[in-house]
Every structure is written in structure tokens, then in C-alpha cells.
Design a protein around this nucleic acid. Sequence first.
DNA 1: GAGTGGTCTAGACCACGGT
DNA 2: CCGTGGTCTAGACCACTCC
Lengths: 243, 243
Amino acid sequence: MPKKLYSDIYDTLKQEINKQVYQPRNTLPGEEELASRFDVTRNTVRRALKELQSDGLVYAVKGRGVVVLEPIRDDRVIFQAENKEGFEALRNFPQNKFIQRLATDVLTFEEVEIDEELEKLTSFNSGDIAYYIERLRLFDGKALAVDNSYFRKNLLGDMNREDAENSIYEYIRENSLFKIAAERSTTTVESATKRDLQVLDVGDMNCVGALTKFVYTDTGRLFEHTQTRYVPNHFSMVDFKSF
Amino acid sequence: MPKKLYSDIYDTLKQEINKQVYQPRNTLPGEEELASRFDVTRNTVRRALKELQSDGLVYAVKGRGVVVLEPIRDDRVIFQAENKEGFEALRNFPQNKFIQRLATDVLTFEEVEIDEELEKLTSFNSGDIAYYIERLRLFDGKALAVDNSYFRKNLLGDMNREDAENSIYEYIRENSLFKIAAERSTTTVESATKRDLQVLDVGDMNCVGALTKFVYTDTGRLFEHTQTRYVPNHFSMVDFKSF
DNA sequence: GAGTGGTCTAGACCACGGT
DNA sequence: CCGTGGTCTAGACCACTCC
């Protein structure tokens, strides 16, 4: 029962590329031809193709056609699911073989008032009340990451430590507080702090990866600032750009 | 002289957002209204809006409108331009204050045949001939990054060390060999290798950031594999996702 | 119910690549 | 030249949010 035509077409073509019906370095059938095959307009086909392109599966060349790109192998992908729902989502990620080997430990749960220093860090407004939550992420019992999160309290309402132990996004959904609209993140490598050495199993390493994330609600309000600090050699993030 | 309507609209709206004509947490005028203002169809306006959204400037909510997101401040952005054209492009990046403090040193330039081990690393085909180029990236005389690159020779033709010392993308353009279509990259943090310690000014650090990049031509052929290894605390990469 | 963005159609013309 | 993808128009109907 097709609800969105373009997304059905996207799924179909994606499968066919995976099954090598269309092979790397060959072109897909023309947009016109695909349009008549799926019995839709060219525009709708184009939309599906655009999605495939932003996945990094194909690339369109004017005058030549839509080219299937050669695939890449990568093993260590974990962080790829580190979108939107945070670490907790990794456990439910279908393609994730690591389910049940992940665990979370809430180290700190407290309310803080945003002062000037925190304002710079979080981009929250000075004077706001925020929850500060420090969560340790365990993989096979090893402490591989810490999340340092600030959530605006006036958007979350009264929350307790148990809510933080489960998925906070679950909590938001259940109480239907608001919707997540978007997130901006920056990735860096930094020296390990004393706290990092205390809580993380960094071994001999003296630095960590840092993923700093700002999350917005659908009214355009910044409501979460999280910095995930993770030990080297265990995470990777993937990206695709087309020109 | 407007060539692409949607991109003019995009530019105009972007400016107006920066000038706070439309302020954070407020909505833009409706799509219909914008369409009549710019004298185009709603579709064309939507296209411009979509671009603004993928920049992370606005977010569209069905039934409410297009919301302007609160901005984020980030200083250390260098790697943001690390798209497509590689390190050399940073020097020409207009918003980059670091021009002329960057330099490149070609450490290694040689031809190699892809064996099984290199096939795994680069995704090139076994038996191919490739240029292996190791370039040191200096900032104020400090060695902050090394690029380990493989380029398929049959796509590049005969290239010499001087070409590598300048921008290789420049070389491709000048000889109009082909066009760059897309790139896939993965970001990780890894233990520093002996080579890293040898060539990079890592100081006390014993790990590095690694950006592994696969670059495709417009015929869908993989032609470059580059791993950039960089010292901590000097680089950041930004990303935006909307849901 | 009025207004918003989301999806889709059925056309048109253009720029580009390959013959 | 023909076929490709890129841009754009002028409509339509739907789903959603807010009052």
C-alpha cells in the first residue's frame, strides 16, 4: 500500500542496485523510462533518484545518465546510528550486531542554572535552568563513551533519574512534549581530561574523540546540548557529499 | 542576472536571516507568499527552502511554517572546507583567516601496484597502478596533518612530483581529465602509528584523528583514496541533519 | 475552518554529452 | 542530431497545526 510514491521507487531501485540488477559504473534507465515503468511523473522519479544520490549510491551526470557508484566496504561503523536519538538508539538499530552488549550508567543527574560559562558552551540563555546528565556508555562492560548533556528544563518538565536511565527521547515521545526537528554536530579530537581518564577505559590513550551535538525542537528552540567523549579505535562516522 | 531562480531566492533569504530580518524561532512568510514575492512558483521557493534547511538555518513544520533556527557559535572550524578539493582548497577558502599560514610538503611520491592488502585499504582493483603520495600539511610551520593518498594512474595519466606539490585538483581541471562527482568519508580516532610520531607534531598525544575519503569521478569510478591523519585539538568538522 | 507545508501531475524549455 | 538530466510552471489534493 504505497503511501509515498517516491519512497517506494527509492526502495525498489535501492534493492535492485544491491542485487546488481544495475551494476557499478553502468547507468540506470533514463528518468523518462523509469517514470513510465513506475507510472509516475518524471518529477517523482527524480525525487527518488535524489535520495539515492544523497545516500551515495548513484550520481547523476547531465547528458549521460545516472551512474551507479562502486560500493565501499567498512566494518567498524557504529556511530552511524548516532543520529537524533542518541546512544540508546544504537541498541534498537536493526543492522546493529551489538545489541545487548551495550549498557548505560547514569553517573550524574542534577539541575543547574546556566551561567555565562555554560552559556558559551551550550548556547542556552543565561539564567535558564537545565538538567545536567552525565551518562557512561558501556560495551561488553568496558566504558567506551561518556555523554555530557544539558537539557532545557522548561521544555522537559519534571524529570527524574529513572527517566534519564532509559532513553530520554522515549520520555519525550511518551509525554508527547514536542518533536525533534534537527541537529547540528561538530566532531573533534581532544586531549583527555582528568574526568575522561577517571571514567573511561582509555587504556594508554591520552586523547578522546568528541562529538558535540545541538538538538532543536520543531519550534526552532535549542533544547539539548550533548558532548559525547569516546575512546579511540571503536567508533566511526560516515558521510557522503555530491557535487 | 539570475540564472538559477531557486539559488537567487536561497541567497536572498539567507542574507535576510543573517541580517535578522527573520529572527530565530519566528517563521518565514508562507511559501505561497514568498512565491508571489519572487514571482515564481511554489515549487521553486520550496527548492530554495530545502537548501536553507540542509544548511541548518531553518526547519519546516507542516501546518505551522518554516522556522528560523537559533544559530550556533563555533570557532575552531577548519575542516569544514575539507570537501572535494582537499587541503589545498583551505587556502583559497574565502572565510578562512588562516590563508598563507598553511603550507604543504610532499614527503613521498611514487608509483605502486595494488596488491591484495592495498586492495582492501583503497577499494582499488588488484593489479592497478596507483600513485602513492604522502603530503605533510603545515600550519605556522607545525606539522598538523599528513595525507596518505592513492590515485589511480590510468585516470590521471603521467603526473610528476611538482604536480603533487600544487593542488592535484588543479591539475585535473587544467588537463580537463574528468569531473569530480562525489565523495564518501569516514571519521575515526586512532592510535598514533610510528610514522605519525615521526612526521607529525603530536607533542604528548598518542593518538590522531583520521579522515578516510573515497572520491569518485563523474563516470562513477573510484579514483582517489586518501587518509588524512591529523593531530588533536586543531580541527573540527560540522554536520547538520534534519528529520 | 483557515492556513500551513508535503506530495504529485502534466506539461515546457534548456544545457550538456555522445553520435 | 538525439537523448540525457536540470530547471521551472501552473495547477491539484492531502495532512497537519492552530484558533
